[in-house]
């Protein structure tokens, strides 16, 4: 009787499962479990301090959020921050990556210089920028010098518009280097022969970038845009530190800060969980949309 064995494909698949199982277990414990717990908790009226069992209230937390002015403001603040940060992040990191790859010297130096802020903790970064945006700090001094004014306070940390701009600047400064490095590796993975062929065909550097590099960078652009979007929607530490340091909270009360205040300051963990589930759904929707849109434009090197 012939012994029935596994095919090569099945063996590969089995080893594949063995290798990914530890990651799946960790992911389940630290990501799926909290998500399911938050979803479950969002249907309860639960006080974080209370020893009494939580009370089931169905969709009431979600209904409250859809009528809450504070939550509506948080959604607007998050949308403004994301729109103001996400687009410049993707565009400028691509431009910087193209610049770094186009020069022959100091490539490593520029990569390190741009990446350095990403290594700093968000708290330290926000503290540095608080000093810069202080009314007596270099942001006011610099703008006064540039605009030829004297002693004008531009209210970086107080006027709603300027405060929002300040948080956008901090975030942009912190993450631009990280996404630049991702684009650099994306550009580096495009076979050089394609550029050579284009050059032989008489393209200039701009045409080479626009017709060769840019279309072949679509997978990297997609990755960067998904990551940048999720990062922007999750922004917290800059807004938290700015508001803790005296800046008015309402213009920068993004959803994550609202979740923190609702759970930790107000003890309403059920309502905070409902907010986090809504934020999760928004991030999930945007990621799915981006993947869906890009699916038809997958890139292969011929």
């Amino acid at each position: 009787m012939r012994k029935r064995g596994f095919s090569m494909e099945q063996k590969k698949a089995r080893w594949g499962w063995i290798f990914v199982t530890p990651a799946l277990i960790l992911f389940s414990i630290f990501s799926f479990y909290p998500i399911f717990t938050a979803f479950y908790t969002s249907f309860y009226n639960k006080n974080l301090l209370s020893l009494r069992p939580p009370r089931y209230i169905g969709w009431a937390n979600y209904q409250y959020l859809f009528t809450s002015q504070e939550f509506r403001e948080s959604v607007i603040n998050t949308a403004v921050f994301t729109a103001g940060t996400f687009v410049p992040l993707v565009v400028f990191s691509l431009i910087l990556a193209a610049f770094i790859m186009s020069i022959n010297k100091f490539q490593r130096f520029f990569q390190m210089a741009f990446y350095a802020p990403a290594v700093l903790s968000s708290v330290v970064a926000a503290l540095i920028w608080l000093l810069i945006f202080d009314p007596r700090g270099i942001a006011n001094q610099g703008l006064n010098t540039m605009l030829g004014t004297s002693g004008v306070n531009y209210h970086w940390l107080s006027k709603a518009g300027m405060l929002r701009l300040s948080t956008i600047i901090v975030y942009f400064w912190k993450y631009i280097g990280y996404f630049t490095i991702v684009f650099v590796s994306g550009i580096g993975s495009i076979p050089y022969t394609l550029h050579e062929a284009a050059l032989i065909d008489g393209t200039n550097r701009w045409q080479n970038f626009w017709y060769i590099t840019f279309p072949l960078l679509k997978p990297t652009t997609l990755l960067v845009s998904v990551m940048a979007l999720i990062q922007c929607l999750k922004t917290f530490s800059t807004q938290y530190l700015f508001s803790s340091s005296g800046a008015p909270t309402r213009p920068i009360n993004v959803i994550t800060l609202n979740i923190y205040n609702t759970a930790i300051k107000d003890y309403r963990i059920g309502r905070a969980s409902a907010m986090s589930i809504l934020l999760f759904l928004v991030m999930f929707l945007f990621t799915w949309l981006q993947l869906k849109v890009s699916k038809t434009e997958e890139v292969t090197y011929m």
Binding site: A160, P248, K265
Partner: peptide, 21 residues
Amino acid sequence: ENGYQFERFIGDAVEGVMLAG
């Protein structure tokens, strides 16, 4: 019980009139 929360609300009002116009 919600004193901490009320203090945050007063802060929002004071900072709103002082800083945000």
